[in-house]
Design a protein around this nucleic acid. Structure first.
Lengths: 341, 341
DNA sequence: TTGTAAGCGTTATCAC
DNA sequence: GTGATAACGCTTACAA
């Protein structure tokens, strides 16, 4: 890879290795004159430091890792983009790992990363993640939590104001004249609790009684076909029971997009009969029919901030005595045709 | 990170460092007895080799990188998944980079990776990639091409049989009774030529005259809103001109999905009036309305194979004298409602 | 079969 | 201000 070494550079300049090294690192011991001479020669000879050697010496690898459940998930891929950009700007290598919502795979990945001497890890824990293991890992390697931050771990956390997001979305549905609002929930993770709670509060604020039958829990472990079949059945029942304009709030993009397709198959007109809004970061929302109103999470920023905080942690003197803060970012609504009045 | 070193392990065992190193590496010089003793102690003391030190010594970093235009693109994120899995299985670190279809950013990324001493790079070149630079880079660092492989570079390439894919798709439309078929094209990259050519051949095979007005080139550089506006106009014109059942073949998922939304806005019924099929790896296809028939590319496999080939290249004795082969994988069609007869 | 020692390319401590 | 020199943890001739 990199051809020329410090040794060769020093030889060319007629200086010692240590002088050259110091000069390149702007050490105060070296005269400006020599510094300039060295730097010029370095760029002329296209000298590139060997980061591996540096790493061996310093103990730092200049590599961080990020673990998310699925690369392909639109929200998560945007988190990756943000993390990539921040890492790239700071000249850190970024290694990606995928846990597939599988705690075992997640643990293995962490072990691998640790063995590979990464300097730190950003993680969106899988749905059934093992807190004890995370804690243990955090003892030996800096860890930062993003997105799913309801874990009792003393570290930096970057998350989203889910409660407010779903409060706003519910209010948006109410504003469009719906008082009978279903919530489609996926996996039972902390975030969903928050989303339901935001929904509740919005109902309360509008004096709408809460009906627990309106919370629809959909098993996420099933195949796509089963999911759709299942959801079709549930929606059909729900819609038969009730009359008058309804609203649906989807808590994941998969569920919300599927829901839109199903409503259309059932011949239900959106937004005339049912108004739909969902948490979704997919670009496809614009192209759906009708275009889907969405609550957008600042995914890119989450990834970015995650890297920043992680690097801060890595470069700190004592990472066990830090002032850990939790960053909560706001969602925003993009109203499209699926909630048009 | 890793606590215990070879030295300490050797001390515990009362052996020399080199004996322990050899034993762990299954060197033939060491007796079975010692090997077992060493390995047992190693696992007992939870010895983990310092890969950085190893790297400095061997010159290999156990790290490869993959550069794609966009992480968020469904096809590309599946490529990443495949690459990740293959790298993970072989205990290679995988670094991701995003070029945003920007040749300059791509070059910078390559430079960064080179400076970071990665052992090799898998790349889907950006639309306007600089072949000369790629060639130059390939001289100093193993490079493997995936997806966009129409570059005159002596290396392994993994691609897709785009011609056959669009031939099949066109035939599928013809089978569903369409003889008047539009093609929506995005950027002008090699792959699009192949797709158009496959389309042509299918027309010929069915004695349908080629009409160059049916090839619709859509500028990709524009914003989403512009794209949709533009596409709406084009489709409206096209559909006004012609009568009888039509077909549309989309060469990218973005275009195809947008197209579906636009047709619906125009009040055109799919598949009754217009039958639509497109290259698309997005899971949303199933949930669209109508569900979208797609030509699926084996993205995961592309990523996997890319890593395999790259590692083969890295671990070869003389990487300039290899028998470079090009792997062409087949697409397959998933017929859904948008092309229903 | 095992041990000694050099060296990978840096950084850092201490003389000069 | 500059230069020897000793690490960092490992692999690998070569010596014993």
């Amino acid at each position: 890879m990199s051809r020329i070494t410090l040794k060769e550079l020093a030889f060319e300049l007629g200086l010692s290795i240590s002088t050259v090294s110091k000069a390149l690192n702007d050490n105060f011991e070296i005269s400006e004159i020599t510094k300039n001479r060295v730097k010029e020669a370095a760029s002329l000879l296209n000298y590139k430091p060997n980061l591996v050697a540096k790493s061996l010496k310093t103990g730092y690898n200049n590599t961080i890792a990020i673990i998310v459940p699925y690369f392909g998930n639109p929200f998560q891929s945007q988190v990756l983009e943000g993390a990539h950009q921040a890492a790239y700007e700071r000249n850190y290598k970024l290694v990606f790992m995928q846990s597939r919502e599988n705690a075992k795979l997640e643990q293995e990945s962490l072990k691998t990363l640790n063995q590979q001497n990464v300097d730190g890890v950003i993680i969106t824990p899988s749905a059934n993640s093992n807190l004890k293991y995370l804690k243990q890992f955090h003892q030996i390697c800096p860890l930062v939590l993003v997105d799913r931050i309801d874990f009792d771990l003393p570290t930096f956390k970057i998350g989203v104001n889910s409660e407010k997001g779903s409060y706003d979305a519910t209010q948006h549905l109410i504003n469009s004249g719906r008082r009978n609002i279903l919530v489609l929930c996926g996996m039972n993770i902390g975030i969903n609790q928050k989303r339901i709670s935001g929904y509740n509060k919005a109902l309360m604020a509008n004096f709408i009684p809460f009906n627990k039958e309106n919370i629809i829990q959909v098993d996420y472990g099933q195949s796509r076909e089963d999911l759709i079949k299942n959801l079709t059945q549930i929606l059909k029942n729900k819609l038969n029971q009730n009359s008058g304009p309804m609203g649906i709030l989807g808590t994941t993009d998969t569920l919300t997009v599927s829901c839109l397709g199903i409503l259309s198959n059932l011949g239900i007109r959106v937004p005339e009969q049912v108004s739909v809004i969902g948490f979704a970061n997919t670009e496809a929302a614009e192209s759906l029919n009708p275009s889907l109103s969405t609550i957008i999470q600042p995914a890119f920023e989450i990834g970015q901030k995650g890297v920043e905080k992680l690097i801060q942690l890595i470069e700190s003197k004592d990472r066990f005595k830090m002032d850990f803060d939790t960053t909560i970012l706001d969602t925003f609504i993009v109203a499209r045709n699926s909630t048009k009045v």
